[in-house]
């Protein structure tokens, strides 16, 4: 006998994500899910964005990592409320983990929660965390073909930040073909070019990011 089911496999995660969204908004926070490959500059970018956050907005950070608390320590050293999730080798964050972490964070809105997802261009995209915005970081040393090789995460992005632009001339990165690649898989995401090292390009990004609420 055949039984039709037609139900989302990750229905449980989706329900928790919807609940997260309610909890975030009740406390006055907008939430940005930051996704990228390992070393692209997720932590660096989050710290730069927090540097530019308008007065009156409280930043909080949820750090996902397979192991260690190195990134959480960097954020904490900057005087920002942070909680670490160790996935113990797991390749992505799930909504339930994020909820537990958020409850451990003190501070009230209005503000912005940055979630640093696990460094991985494949798995995090399937798991809604209840975020308002998906920010994908690509970095120059990874090469300009990444949107074509990992189309799904770029397709899911609301905003794409090309980081380490200071290295472009050293590694023959073709910015125009990067843009064309993004546009082949995503016709709506905003694209910004920045260097977390020199600070170039951060102004337009922060202006856009913090004024969309």
């Amino acid at each position: 006998m055949n039984i039709k089911i037609r139900q989302a496999v990750l229905a449980h995660n989706d329900a928790e994500a919807a609940e997260n969204a309610r909890i975030f908004h009740d406390r006055g926070f907008r939430v940005v899910n930051v996704m990228a490959s390992p070393g692209a500059g997720k932590t660096s970018l989050i710290l730069c964005l927090i540097d530019h956050i308008p007065a009156g907005l409280t930043p909080l950070v949820i750090e996902g990592d397979c192991a260690s608390s190195v990134d959480a320590d960097r954020v904490s050293a900057a005087g920002v409320g942070v909680v670490q999730i160790n996935t113990d080798g797991g390749c992505h964050l799930e909504a339930g983990m994020v909820r537990k972490a958020f409850i451990d964070l003190s501070g009230n809105g209005p503000g912005v929660v940055f979630i640093e997802n696990i460094g991985n261009l494949i798995c995090p995209v399937e798991y809604d965390l209840g975020e308002d915005m998906r920010l994908v970081v690509a970095s120059v040393p990874e090469g300009d073909d990444k949107p074509l090789k990992y189309p799904y995460i770029f397709a899911a992005a609301d905003v794409i930040v090309l980081n380490k632009i200071d290295l472009a001339e050293h590694v023959e990165f073709d910015i125009a073909s990067f843009h064309a690649g993004v546009r082949a898989v995503n016709d709506h995401a905003q694209i910004f070019e920045v260097s977390c090292k020199s600070g170039d390009g951060l102004k337009p990004l922060t202006k856009w990011l913090f004024s969309t609420d």
Binding site: M1, N2, I3, I5, Q7, E126
Partner: peptide
């Protein structure tokens, strides 16, 4: 990503 059906 969904469960379409099952055979029982």
């Amino acid at each position: 990503l969904f469960l379409e059906s099952m055979e029982v």
